Computed example of a mutant assay.
Amino acid sequence: MITVKKKGIILEKTNLDFENGGVLNPAVIKEGNSVHLFYRAVSKGNFSSIGYCELDGPVLVKERRTTAFLSSEYSYESQGLEDPRLVKIEDTYFLTYTAYNGVNALGALALSSDLIHFKKQGIIVPQITYQEFIRLTEHGAESKTRCLVYNEHNRIFHSDTAGVYLWDKNLIFFPRKINDKLCFLHRIKPDIQIIVEVNDLKELTYEFWQHYFLNIDESIVLSPKYKHESSYIGGGCPPIETAFGWLIIYHGVQDSEHGYIYSACAALLDLKNPRNEIARLPYALFKPDQEWELKGEVNNVCFPTGTSLFDDTLYIYYGAADERIAVASISISELLKELMNIHNEK
């Protein structure tokens, strides 16, 4: 078992209007000794924007904005910006988030060259109705059945109403091009899908996504496997490049008599072809067991969304009970050794 040190809460909600309902699920990037957090800020009434704070080192809050950093501007995000992630690819910062308009929850992108000014690019995941999804995946019955079961929000999965789409969340870019291609993870429950072979974001056309869904089984990189992730899994932190492969810290969900339990999980993917799983932990990396994780807006939640690496110590930032931001630390070399031992035992 990996030694996990829970450092506790580093950020809580305030009385400010934009974050008086909760703070959670931060995008994280380290620059020098500073760690930048772009976090989901929730106002009362469940309207989300993105807040910002800077840490001095891995845990000490140095600066925190008193207004939202990014907020709703367009119809596709009219009810909020949720659960951001952040990577730097070459000279550009890619900030992804879930855009929610009251009906659809879909992955959107904003770009920046300086971490200050971000230009929104809109939704980049497929905008596809449930009926169209059924049609395109008719030859992949297993994938179709799994996705329909887990994506029945408000029982509208059968609807062919214009503008009602399959939910597509947890949009996360790899922090560099792979084989000269942009690559990102996204999640249609209960699996994590992966897109490779995209030279330019302009390729993500309606026709591209039609072809993608016709062959969706080829794009599934992780599916639920163990008890702690038996209900569904989803992307967590941006992939971390190591000598052994891409280290993925993701979330796994288990249904229990106390409701869903969200845990942090870990896997290792092949560097050249991240569709190939090298190994994954057969147990949760860490799960809710502290008061701040067990009780909150949503009970029993550890939802990892960002990391920072200081020497051998990997700090994992996560939403705790959908109300506050906490951090845990592990030895990255210990985790990689454990994953490679699992791989070698296959």
Score class of each variant (00 low, 15 high):
4 V>L: 13
9 I>V: 15
18 F>K: 06
22 G>W: 06
23 V>G: 05
39 Y>N: 01
40 R>K: 09
40 R>I: 02
42 V>Y: 00
47 F>V: 10
48 S>I: 04
54 E>N: 12
55 L>A: 02
58 P>F: 00
61 V>F: 11
70 L>P: 05
82 E>S: 07
83 D>A: 05
84 P>W: 00
98 T>N: 06
99 A>H: 05
103 V>K: 07
115 L>D: 06
115 L>T: 06
119 K>R: 12
120 K>I: 04
122 G>I: 00
122 G>A: 03
122 G>E: 04
126 P>D: 07
129 T>Y: 01
129 T>W: 02
140 G>Q: 13
142 E>M: 04
142 E>K: 10
144 K>C: 11
145 T>I: 14
156 I>C: 11
160 D>V: 08
161 T>K: 15
163 G>A: 12
166 L>W: 01
173 F>S: 00
174 F>R: 01
183 C>S: 14
185 L>I: 15
191 D>A: 12
194 I>D: 02
198 V>K: 03
214 L>G: 08
216 I>A: 09
222 L>P: 00
228 H>W: 13
240 I>N: 04
242 T>N: 07
246 W>H: 04
257 E>L: 13
261 I>Q: 12
265 C>K: 09
268 L>K: 09
272 K>L: 13
275 R>Y: 14
281 L>M: 09
284 A>W: 08
285 L>Q: 06
285 L>K: 01
287 K>V: 03
291 E>S: 12
295 K>S: 10
300 N>I: 07
311 D>E: 15
315 Y>W: 06
317 Y>C: 04
318 Y>M: 04
319 G>D: 05
320 A>P: 11
323 E>V: 01
326 A>R: 07
332 I>S: 02
332 I>D: 05
333 S>H: 09
340 M>T: 11
344 N>T: 06
